[in-house]
Design a protein around this nucleic acid. Structure first.
Lengths: 141, 141
DNA sequence: GCAGGTTTTTTGAATTTGTCTATTTCTAAA
DNA sequence: TTTAGAAATAGACAAATTCAAAAAACCTGC
């Protein structure tokens, strides 16, 4: 299912499907996130949301992004030492992180990367996700 | 080369090999790090170092860990949203991160995990590292 | 040993991201 | 329309990290 490029009502449905009460603020935040596949920090969502007039408070942004992540609507990316990125694309994919610029990119889906011989997990644990991050830097010559 | 379980003079040599002036504080910090392969945050190094009496200031810890990472003596792990871990084992290996406990473990070297068909990197960039993180959680029954 | 320059360390303030708490506002259902 | 629970808000707070300025340590040539 494509969860980006959605209309206002699509977004409402998306929240409901995930058991999230669609409040005004949550819809505003979801609309920003699901406009297209992207990686946004909480602060980016905050400033984009309140560009013209205040639509939600800081606490609400943090609460909402946390809730969306927990309900599987977005994916938390821990990749930058200073902030969390939220990925509106929850399908299985990995990332390039440019340490020089702090920018984050998807590894294209058509790169047929495969991981073999996955290790056994420590006893009493289950996998939540497997993150592969290519830390890249600019060729400096 | 084994860079853990080192004597005081071994540690001095290790710093010199990496082009780092071996000051008193740096040696103290290195001795903690290279006592054994481990994952320590700056705050952990700080409190371990100054347990009995002050041996280095906070700023020095941060400066030094940053310097060690830059010189390739330790590896920075971005895996926990609230702090950086420094890994005294710089050999090629990956990690389990328990999201419930915040604890970090090595994927055992004898797990023969392989990654095939690595993607092409974005133009003008080179790889610095490839990090694979298994985010695990406790089996809750 | 000592002046002058460089490197390192220190202190403490500042910054940034994120969390918490108390209060107010909504919402949905009876 | 009352009312209980859920959600949102403002603003204080916390934790990790960075920064700037000053002090201390370390050279090096004399």
């Amino acid at each position: 299912m494509m969860t980006t490029g959605l209309t206002r009502t699509d977004v409402r449905g998306l929240l409901l499907e995930h058991g999230i009460t669609p409040t005004k603020q949550r819809l505003e935040i979801a609309q920003i996130l699901f406009a297209r596949p992207q990686h946004l920090s909480a602060e980016q969502v905050l400033s984009r949301l309140n560009e013209e007039r205040p639509k939600a408070s800081k606490a609400t942004i943090y609460n909402t992004l946390g809730l969306f992540a927990q309900k599987g609507l977005v994916r938390e990316l821990i990749v930058d030492p200073t902030k969390i990125f939220y990925d509106s694309n929850t399908s299985d994919h990995h990332h390039f992180y440019n340490v020089d610029t702090g920018k984050l990119f998807d590894v294209p889906a058509d790169s047929n990367m495969v991981v073999d011989n996955l290790p056994n997990l420590p006893d009493g644990t289950v996998a939540e996700s497997v993150d592969i991050i290519f830390r890249i830097k600019n060729k400096s010559n």
